[in-house]
Computed example of a mutant assay.
Amino acid sequence: MAFHCATLPLYDLAETRIQTDALWTGLATSFRKKGIKNVPDTLFRGEKTYQKKLFFGQICGYPLTHEYAGRFKVIATPLYRTPYFTGPEYLSVITVHQQCKWQKLEDARGSRVVINSRSSHSGYNILRLMVTPFTKETTFFSKVSVSGAHRQSLSRIRQKQADLASIDGLTWSMLEMYAPEALKGCRILTLTPPAPAPAFVTEKETSQEMLELFRNALKNAFDEPKFNLVAKNLFLENTQIIPENAYDCITEMERISIEDL
């Protein structure tokens, strides 16, 4: 099978491109040592990423279980060391302006929400779940806008163009370390329930033998001290194999939530 690209787009901040490239170099080296062929030398960065045949990529659990359901095999789930991760599960942070007086999510009734995308679990799906108990008689938010990215959502909060957003916890931690100005004027109101973190994936046609090679290569990579230093620059500590149906909780959250914000 011909693979076309490797991509790690979800946490690829402009400020961490060097670290992300170094991470891929380490992974690619480990893949080659395991005898995996046609390993891309560099990461693909561009539009329509998932329309290409993936050698290795990372994808949010919502498109994994919706738009791309049946398209990919999960290689492993990454483990990140931040306050918003517990094992292979992560949280989002419900974010408001620093001057906002709200103490809990219910206080935000009638406010303006900004989401990164309707195909995002961390920025949209989980927020639907959280406001569902408050929407029996009326909609919760007065206005919903779409920013296109978590960082852009934060910008709208800072500029008071929106009142609330749900931000991926790892994105928050990375901005806190590498671009703290992006969080200036924002604060965390509350945290969301957990869900499995965005998965490392490959194409569904990948054989079980190749899948095991990927997994063993990941394990070997984290056994290398030099690679660990690179990975920890991106909060990445290891990976874990979890049941693929673990991601079904995301569709279950959708099932019991309101249809739209």
Rank of each mutant, 00 (worst) to 15 (best):
T132S: 14
K104C: 01
A6E: 03
W102R: 03
E137R: 12
S153D: 06
T65Y: 03
E106T: 09
G35Y: 01
C100D: 15
P133Y: 12
Q152K: 15
L170H: 09
S111G: 06
I18S: 13
F56C: 08
K143I: 00
E47D: 13
G110A: 08
I258A: 06
E244M: 07
N233Y: 03
Q51S: 13
A195W: 11
V96P: 00
A217Y: 08
H121R: 11
P88G: 05
R17S: 11
L218M: 13
F56N: 07
F72R: 11
S153Q: 04
I59K: 09
M174H: 05
L154A: 09
L175N: 05
D12V: 08
A76Y: 09
L170C: 04
D107E: 06
P40W: 07
R156Y: 14
P225M: 03
M130E: 08
L183M: 09
A6V: 04
F134I: 01
F141G: 00
K184M: 09
L229H: 12
H150T: 06
T138M: 10
D163R: 00
E67Q: 14
Q152N: 11
R118D: 08
L54K: 03
I250D: 06
N116P: 05
L234Q: 10
C100E: 06
V146T: 12
Q240S: 11
N220F: 07
R32L: 03
L236P: 01
R156L: 14
N238Q: 10
P180Q: 06
E89S: 13
G46Q: 02
L8N: 09
V131Y: 10
A69L: 13
T7F: 03
N125G: 10
D41G: 14
R17W: 03
G87D: 08
P243R: 10
F227M: 00
V113C: 13
K48H: 12
Y80I: 05
M253D: 12
T139S: 15
A76V: 09
E259G: 01
Q58G: 01
I242E: 07
T192F: 02
A182E: 15
L189Q: 06
K52Y: 13
L8H: 10
K160A: 10
I18V: 14
M174A: 08
S145A: 10
Q152C: 02
R187M: 07
P198Y: 05
L127P: 03
L234T: 05
T42R: 15
F214L: 04
K53Q: 15
R158W: 00
F3D: 03
L218T: 08
T135K: 00
P198K: 08
T25I: 05
T7V: 15
E15M: 09
T77Q: 10
D12M: 04
T239K: 02
F72G: 04
R45K: 14
G169I: 05
Y84V: 01
R112L: 00
K52W: 12
H97W: 11
I94L: 11
L218Q: 12
A246S: 14
L164G: 01
G185S: 01
T138W: 10
L154Y: 09
Y68P: 00
L129S: 14
V39S: 04
G46Y: 08
F214E: 10
R255Q: 15
V131M: 12
